[in-house]
């Protein structure tokens, strides 16, 4: 299949709370010192899904798209090193401060410019804004169905069988291609690029597209957000912990039980 995978570069979501800082006036996250941005953790799983589908099929093509600053090239390189064929970086000042809805429009336009695909794969959400709306948005722009939170994807003729995650279980669905599918963490570990592949990836082409190439420049810019960011801050957490002491773990446990009984918690 001709598959497009969308990958986003984000601040490391495992940044400890203590290193996480916000510029409240600018309504922006201040990059944590010494913690490099990473590929959104679900997105390599989307790349993995694309590679597995084409491997099972014995052919096809995987194109990776990332919208972001110039450093987002690293997210594309990572997917190329995993085995994707080519990459497209969408970048430029017009994309700064845009919301997920504008991002969906830009990715949708880029996919249309590529002539569409049999399948567009994405992550279930980007772990910066934790929204999970771009896959549905891109599907809506392309006029194709979307299946979210995939745990497993299998090709069945011109259709896909997808196992997806529900709040309280799993569901299997069938959908005709072309379609958009978003992948959840239950999909499993993505492959880890080997040194040889990383070197091969350096030779693969990454095209760079700007707002002008997509024909939607008038919808970009922070001023055209559909969702206006009014405030961004770090919630305050107070610590009032009482450490339960004791000479042994067993004694600590007994003391805890007493405390819990006294507080009528058990």
């Amino acid at each position: 299949m001709n598959i497009i995978v969308c990958v986003k570069q984000i601040p490391d979501p495992e940044t400890p709370a203590a290193s996480f800082k916000v510029d409240e006036a600018a309504k922006k996250v201040i990059p944590a010192q010494g913690i490099a941005p990473v590929v959104n953790p679900y997105d390599p799983q989307a790349t993995e899904a694309a590679l597995r589908l084409n491997e099972a099929d014995g052919g096809g093509k995987v194109t990776v798209i990332s919208l972001g600053p110039d450093t987002a090239r690293d997210a594309i390189k990572h997917a190329l090193a995993m085995g994707a064929d080519e990459g497209i970086l969408i970048t430029g000042p017009e994309f700064e401060g845009i919301d997920n809805f504008q991002t969906a429009k830009a990715l949708g336009a880029a996919i249309q410019k590529l002539g569409g695909a049999d399948l567009v794969l994405m992550g279930r959400a980007a772990a910066d804004w934790d929204m999970g709306v771009v896959p549905t948005g891109v599907a809506s722009i392309l006029g194709v169905p979307v299946v979210t939170l995939a745990k497993a994807i299998e090709k069945a003729g011109g259709a896909l069988k997808v196992e997806r995650v529900l709040d309280d279980g799993f569901q299997t669905v069938e959908v005709n291609t072309p379609a958009v599918v978003s992948v959840s963490n239950e999909f499993g570990e993505p492959r880890y690029p080997q040194l040889r592949q990383i070197m091969l990836a350096a030779k693969k082409t990454v095209q760079v597209w700007g707002a002008g190439d997509l024909g939607i420049a008038d919808q970009l810019g922070a001023g055209n957000r559909d969702l206006t960011l009014e405030a961004l801050y770090v919630p305050k957490v107070e610590s009032n912990v009482e450490i339960i002491e004791g000479d042994s773990p067993e004694e600590k446990a007994r003391n805890l039980a007493q405390k819990l009984r006294a507080a009528k918690l058990i």
């Binding site: 601040p11 979501p13 940044t15 709370a17 996480f20 916000v22 996250v29 772990a127 910066d128 804004w129 934790d130 957000r225 559909d226 969702l227 206006t228 960011l229 009014e230 405030a231 961004l232 801050y233 770090v234 919630p235």
Partner: peptide
């Protein structure tokens, strides 16, 4: 947002 590290207040255009 940011996995719970931040709070965002938003309004709609």
């Amino acid at each position: 947002a940011y996995g719970g590290n931040a709070r965002a207040e938003v309004s709609f255009k």
